[in-house]
Amino acid sequence: MKIVADENIPLVNEFFSRLGEVTRLPGRNMTPADIRDADALIVRSVTRVNEALLAGSKVKFVGTCTIGVDHLEQAYLDSNNIGWSSAPGCNANSVVEYVYAALAHLDINWLPVKFGIIGCGNVGGLLYQRLKAQGVNVRCYDPNLTAAQNPDLTSLEDVLSCDVISMHTPLVMDGLHPSFHLLSHTELNQLKPGAVLINAGRGAVIDNQALLEVLSARTDLRVVLDVWEPEPDISLELLDKVLLGSPHIAGYSYDGKLNGTEIVYQALCKHIGTQPQASLAELVAPLANNQLRVDDETKSVFEIAQSLIQQVYDIVADDARLRDTARKALAGEINFGEGFDHLRKHYPKRREFHNYQVHFESVSDSDKQWLQVLGFRCV
Rank of each mutant, 00 (worst) to 15 (best):
I3E: 13
I3K: 09
I3N: 11
A5S: 14
V12F: 02
F15S: 06
S17L: 02
E21L: 04
V22Q: 07
R28E: 12
M30H: 01
T31M: 10
T31G: 09
A33T: 02
D39S: 13
I42T: 10
S45K: 04
S45Y: 01
S45M: 07
V46D: 06
V46C: 13
L53G: 07
A55T: 12
K60W: 03
V62L: 09
T64K: 08
I67H: 03
G68P: 02
L72E: 02
E73S: 14
Q74D: 07
Y76H: 08
L77E: 04
N80W: 01
I82H: 10
N91P: 10
S94N: 08
S94R: 04
E97A: 07
H105Y: 06
L111D: 03
V113R: 11
I118R: 03
C120P: 05
N122S: 10
G124I: 02
Q134S: 08
C140V: 13
D142K: 01
N144E: 08
L145C: 07
T146V: 10
P151N: 08
S155N: 11
L171I: 03
L171N: 01
F180N: 05
N189E: 13
A200L: 01
V205C: 06
S216D: 06
A217N: 10
T219E: 15
L236P: 00
K241G: 09
V242M: 03
L243N: 12
L243W: 03
L244P: 03
G245D: 08
P247W: 00
I249S: 11
G251Q: 06
G256Q: 05
T261K: 13
V264D: 09
Q266C: 15
P276A: 05
A281Q: 15
Q291Y: 00
V294F: 05
D295T: 08
E303V: 08
I304S: 14
A305T: 02
I315R: 10
V316W: 11
V316T: 14
D319K: 01
R321Q: 15
R321E: 15
A329L: 05
L330R: 14
A331L: 03
K345Q: 13
K345D: 11
Y347L: 04
P348I: 08
R350C: 11
R351C: 07
F353I: 09
D365E: 10
S366R: 04
Q369C: 09
W370I: 14
F376N: 12
F376A: 09
